[in-house]
Nucleic acid binder design. Structure first.
Lengths: 187, 187, 187, 187
DNA sequence: GATGAATGAGTATTCATTCAT
DNA sequence: AATGAATGAATACTCATTCAT
């Protein structure tokens, strides 16, 4: 039941927004009552926190696995971008909630989420730095800013990418990484 | 007064969110009453629509000016990315509202905003296609997907870019466009 | 309207209790809506505080007037007991609320009420001490404890005294003060 | 377990009030669940009734013992006042609940409690009448009203008397009965 | 142009109680 | 004897909106 409530609420929060979704909306489709909701969650914000934690933890886990593999930095970069876009099919709604509704968490809860989000970004930045040292990436790269650029490219997909559309997740990842690595201009 | 209300509400909508901000919150800081608000706006949603229109129209105008200039496609691409990031200082809050609160508009109003947003994107996509034809960009480019990549890089800046921080808007635009044009790998 | 709400709520709080009375209960009998209540009071507790302040301030004022009159201490003591019992007709319900519902005030609000309540008691204690010095009251009196005894006698009236019953307020006050001054035993 | 629940609830009802205390609050500190509560009590009101009965029955019993002893009426009066104040240490919280929360009992249950409460008072009133006949108390005494005065003095102690404070229960009872019997004025 | 009073529908949350196990 | 899941009705409070003045 707790999982059913979480899934249902992710669907609704993504479509209508956290504040715009009432507990009534959530339980209605599940055929239970508001009391049931409060048996499993002590507040609406706790539910939001659960969603946030589920998303960022899963992301950090997968990222950790990629970092531990035996691959070039270029290859790892591809895997990370691919992971983010592949994720949309299963985590897309959660991702939108993660970026859009974070302001609805209390400061106390934010102090748990924000460091995790920053850690995810720092892992990419460090990958870039390692790639520079290994001669895979340009030496004059501003790793800090470029990381934001790469993250923007990948995260923005949550705004438009349709897993059932023309291009597959792998194709999109390949196009993006090719752009990031080789650029788009004719040399 | 209408402008004062709009400015104040942009500040508040960005910080707390559209639904989380009450008319009371808006008028309180201006020293007027709710009645005054309803003298200038017929509903809270109309105010949100005004903000959306103000943002996207200004963007389309500036984009149109860039397209009319005598420049290479590469140069125009840079100008567009630079515009978006430069914009954060003055339009940053409005931009966040634009992307985050669009769901609070009625279908009728969305049918006015969405085509404008798509037009902005299509103008970039067409610029890429023109650049391919002119031999400035790679012939094998997927202009559609790459446009989303470029937009993601630029738009994501609203999430992190601090106009008073270490890097200037121009520096960030240069780093991003260099990445997009030349890529980050060592050839 | 504010006064009407206050009067109505005093009636209901006394009969059913503060927590047991809903805002709905209060506004229903007045033919207005809950919104109206919150136009005049920012919370149910604020209303309770208003009732507390109204009661204790009026009591302190009247007590002050008695203390300023040219009378013996005995006479002043009688006036105070008489005031408390006479008060039941107009302030009885408020008095019950004052003693019974104080626990529903926040610590912050209690820190305003409690000193006033203590001041009222101390004014009686000081009157006893003055009476001892002037030779009106026994020298061996424990003024502190006796004050609690007198207050108990008078305040307890709120539990049983019926202004429309057999004995008048003046008669009850006279019986009580006679008991307090002369005692009930045969010498 | 039933006794543990009763003790715990007396503690909580006195501190926070009957309505303000939830079944959850009561069972939480005992390490059991709400179901357990409903195994021993059929409703929250039944528990409140148990507390009321326990208090008033014990009081009537003790009062009966005093009345049966071989003593003067004056002496019996002292014993009763002393009993009430001595009681605060063990029955204080229950007494507060008795006087404050009676309104939460149904009419049916009230019809059992109220006669017992009145009986307790009538026993005092009759003691006064007996004392008048025996020449111990003034012949012009209004026994009815004076009884309320004595009860007020004693019962009010529940509002302020601290068993661990400066004065002992016996000292307070002696001061009170001295006031009631001899009065406070200098003859 | 602006206000102040009022509304009514909605929101998160609480809680006594039930009941199958 | 005890539990855990579920209910449903109630509660304080919010807020966009209206409108006579």
């Amino acid at each position: 039941m707790k999982d059913k409530i979480t899934e249902q609420s992710i669907r609704l929060f993504e479509k209508k927004g956290f504040t715009e979704t009432s507990i009534q909306d959530i339980v209605e489709g599940l055929g239970v009552t508001k009391g049931t909701f409060y048996y499993y969650f002590s507040s609406k914000e706790e539910l939001l926190m659960d969603i946030h934690l589920g998303y960022i933890n899963q992301l950090l886990d997968t990222q950790g696995e990629i970092l531990n593999e035996l691959m070039s930095c270029k290859q790892k970069l591809f895997e990370m971008v691919y992971m983010l876009i592949r994720n949309i099919k299963i985590q897309g709604p959660a991702a939108k909630i993660f970026f859009r509704e974070m302001k609805n968490l209390s400061d106390e809860r934010l102090s748990i989420i924000v460091p995790k989000r920053d850690q995810f970004r720092m892992n990419i930045e460090n990958l870039l730095i390692e790639g520079i040292e290994k001669g895979e990436f340009r030496a004059d790269l501003n790793a800090h800013i470029v990381t934001f650029g790469i993250l923007g490219t990948a995260n923005w997909s949550y705004q438009w990418f349709n897993p059932n559309g023309e291009s597959t997740d792998r194709e999109v990842a390949e196009i993006f990484v090719k752009m990031i690595l080789e650029g788009i201009q004719v040399n």
